[in-house]
Amino acid sequence: MKTSKTIYLFFLPGLILYSIFFLYPTASALFYSFTDWDGFSEAFQFVGFHNFERALTGDSIFWKTVGNNLKFMLVVVILQTIVALAFAMIVLKNTKTTVFLRALYFFPTILSSVSVAFIWSFIYDPSLGILNQLLELAGLDFLAQNWLGNANIAIYSLAITQIWFHAGQMLIVFVAGLQAIPQEMYEVAKIEGASKWQTFRSVTWPLLAPSATIVVAYTTIQSFKAFDLVFAMTGGGPNNSTEIIATYIYEVAFRSYQFGYASSISVIFMIIIAFITFLQFKALRSDRVSY
């Protein structure tokens, strides 16, 4: 069947906007990463790989942000995936209660990062916050903390907030994955006398692999992109202890006006994300289980 040439017009409005506001800036990020542009002057110089060298060898804050990003990512990916999967298995069957609970657990996902940041700043507040008050009630005063003010733990406090924010969404992905597993598989396992753990190991887990891959990959990427939450909650402080790559780019570009340098950090960031995305696609391809 021949398609009329007018079909090309369908791409036009989207392509124009996409070229101006995505393709062009992406290309210029690459371009500026080799310059010392301050973002405002007419003149700038090409500095070759100097910016990249500076980031990778001379900038201790850059490496600190990479480290923070990894800490944040590890805690979120591991804890959130466990929480989401464990609870997905409990609210798997469709009853009135489970449908309600799933909707409740999902709820934080629809809030804005700024709202979540305010809510959790209050929870973590050293004097007003519910967390320290609960610890006091439980006689665990010594655990009470300035949760966001202590440079050693602030990044983990943020990670817990991120999990509260998004675990419900991942839970739903797991529920969809679990519900797609045919019931007969479980019946066979039961007839063969498999224990609960054996059933999980040899039926649920292998068949759940595609959903698990999706959840892990999505959570990983999301933890790199947690700009809004970090920016609204701690702004990267105290003492850069919660600075992640994304907030550091903002800092370098818009607080110290080093657009060229910020662009090269962006390019490094892009490479990290591309690498993770590539792994995600590879894993998704090889993990397809048929049944």
Binding site: F11, G14, Y18, I20, F21, F22, Y24, P25, T26, S28, A29, Y32, G39, I221, F224, K225, F227, I245, A246, I249, Y250, A253, F254, F259, A262, S263, S266, V267, F269, M270, I273, A274, T277
Partner: peptide
């Protein structure tokens, strides 16, 4: 090809292009 071109944007987070986007 067009599908690949348009979905390329999913792999580049907004924060990566915020600097040149701002100047544009």
């Amino acid at each position: 090809i067009l599908f690949a071109l348009f979905t390329l944007g999913m792999m580049v987070p907004a924060q990566v292009i915020m600097v040149p986007l701002y100047s544009l």
